[in-house]
């Protein structure tokens, strides 16, 4: 991949494109309510943006955008958003994930439901993007300068 990484054209194009990809991803997540798309697709696209960046600029640059720690927090908190939404419905006396009972807008359960669906979609999106990025970082070949331990020393416990 080193050939691609040194191409200035590609580097520039990627640098310009990635923000657009991410905005598109956010659009996909939010648009899920009324059209094709949703948290999952948006999350994948968002992740793909960062993966693309990391592929071209190297893991180190990529991890500056999405550090391991942030990744871990994001992947946990995405599911947490979902589950907490569900549990908050319990608190307001409904069943698990019964959005309508949350008294944000008392008269219009459909709108509340719509809002919470968006929240849930965002939660899904966050987890998906975090996991996709971490999958990529872990599966792709480690770059020589950031490798801490050679394979042979890790064994033996």
């Amino acid at each position: 991949m080193s050939g691609i990484q040194e191409s200035i054209v590609i580097r520039t194009v990627v640098r310009i494109m990635v923000p657009f990809i991410q905005i598109f991803a956010l659009y996909v997540i939010m648009h899920g309510a009324s059209g094709p798309g949703g948290g999952f697709q948006g999350g994948v696209i968002f992740g793909a943006g960062i993966i693309l960046y990391a592929m071209i600029y190297g893991h180190k640059e990529g991890k500056q955008r999405m550090s391991d720690k942030l990744n871990r927090i994001l992947s946990s908190s995405g599911v947490a958003i979902f589950a907490v939404t569900g549990i908050s419905c319990l608190v307001f006396g409904g069943m698990f994930l019964q959005y309508g009972v949350v008294p944000l807008l008392p008269d219009n359960p459909a709108v509340v439901s719509r809002l919470l669906i968006d929240v849930v979609e965002i939660g899904i999106g966050i987890t998906v993007l975090a996991v996709m990025i971490s999958l990529f970082f872990d599966v792709s070949p480690p770059e020589t300068d950031e490798e801490e331990l050679p394979a042979s020393e890790e064994a033996g416990q």
Partner: peptide
């Protein structure tokens, strides 16, 4: 089935392929 097609394009053709290629590189 637009949503599923969208997802398959993003996942099957996108992420899965990236993961496969990364694996092959290793």
């Amino acid at each position: 089935s637009v949503d599923v097609g969208f997802t398959e394009a993003a996942v099957g053709a996108g992420i899965t392929t990236v993961l496969f290629i990364a694996t092959l590189a290793r």
